[in-house]
Amino acid sequence: MAPGAVLGAGRPVVAFGEPEGYDERGRGRTLGGRVRVGPRTAAATACVVLGLGLIGGAVTGSWLTGDSGKGGAAGTFAAVGSMWHSIPVDQLFPPTVEGRGAGPGGADRTWTRVAVAPDSGCQDAFDPLLRKALAPVGCARLLRATYTDATQSYVTTVGLLFTKADATAMGSLAARFKAEGLDRRTDLMPRPYAAEDTVAAAFGDKQRASWTISVLTDAPVVVYAVSGWADGRTVDAPQPAGDAMQSGATTAPAQAGLGHEAQGLADRIERGFRKTVGSATEKPS
């Protein structure tokens, strides 16, 4: 999967590689010829589908609610960890994301996608210490997109890191991030994706203003976002989104609502991803 896109006069154009089951535009394609199925085979298949439907429903319920219960954890990991290559880019990173109540004071937000990053792995996507902190879970695939707000004043890169880890390793990483406050350290930040000929062209490391990192424990995925001003101004003191969103916060990122930009977009990309995976794993009863 090698996504890439830029903002044009209309909807961004996205070019993908050829993931299994989809063409370069994310449309379904036939993987083989039709196979004739006899009555006995059809009956057996129906039984298998029914059984898979019951299992898939249980896994979906666990995934959608964020519950990594023991019974469904293995199935959830198996389903989610291998689905990045078959989900169209517009479902992972929609062209437009609505954020009702996501802004300061409960204001609504709308984000427009300006670019989808080419698949480049994880090597240059994180500060060195963050890359080292994430190393125990590995990097199977990193997908990123950059968005701007309705006024094109802010830009935010959101990422989905698909790891190689099992549930135990993800749980350990999440516990470490929480115990050591790794998601709050300014020397462990995700890097933005700056796309040429877009409002995010000047969005580099020195322009990072606020960020959030979430290590999921019910799937081998790390969700993150980093935000900044679209005019390329540098930021001397970046602030984690959780702090920037606090009532009474007076820093420049907080006053501008950049904590809300990062957290709000990350939350909604994660919700959409959960919904997409849930739909993909559901089976007709």
Score class of each variant (00 low, 15 high):
residue 58 A to P: 00
residue 62 S to T: 10
residue 64 L to E: 12
residue 64 L to F: 08
residue 65 T to P: 01
residue 67 D to W: 14
residue 74 A to F: 05
residue 74 A to D: 15
residue 74 A to Q: 14
residue 75 G to P: 08
residue 75 G to W: 02
residue 78 A to C: 04
residue 80 V to I: 15
residue 81 G to M: 12
residue 84 W to F: 15
residue 86 S to Y: 00
residue 88 P to K: 06
residue 91 Q to M: 12
residue 93 F to I: 08
residue 95 P to K: 03
residue 96 T to M: 06
residue 97 V to I: 12
residue 97 V to N: 12
residue 100 R to A: 13
residue 101 G to L: 07
residue 103 G to A: 14
residue 104 P to Y: 10
residue 108 D to C: 02
residue 108 D to I: 04
residue 111 W to F: 13
residue 111 W to H: 05
residue 111 W to C: 06
residue 113 R to Y: 02
residue 113 R to G: 00
residue 113 R to I: 00
residue 114 V to L: 13
residue 115 A to G: 04
residue 117 A to E: 13
residue 119 D to H: 12
residue 121 G to Q: 10
residue 124 D to V: 00
residue 127 D to I: 00
residue 128 P to M: 10
residue 133 A to R: 09
residue 134 L to V: 02
residue 135 A to M: 08
residue 140 A to M: 07
residue 140 A to C: 03
residue 143 L to I: 07
residue 146 T to G: 12
residue 147 Y to F: 14
residue 147 Y to G: 04
residue 148 T to A: 13
residue 150 A to W: 06
residue 151 T to H: 13
residue 152 Q to C: 08
residue 155 V to M: 09
residue 156 T to H: 03
residue 157 T to F: 05
residue 158 V to L: 01
residue 159 G to M: 12
residue 163 T to L: 07
residue 164 K to C: 04
residue 164 K to L: 09
residue 166 D to W: 09
residue 167 A to Y: 01
residue 169 A to M: 01
residue 169 A to I: 05
residue 172 S to E: 15
residue 175 A to F: 03
residue 176 R to T: 13
residue 176 R to K: 13
residue 178 K to Y: 01
residue 178 K to E: 15
residue 179 A to E: 13
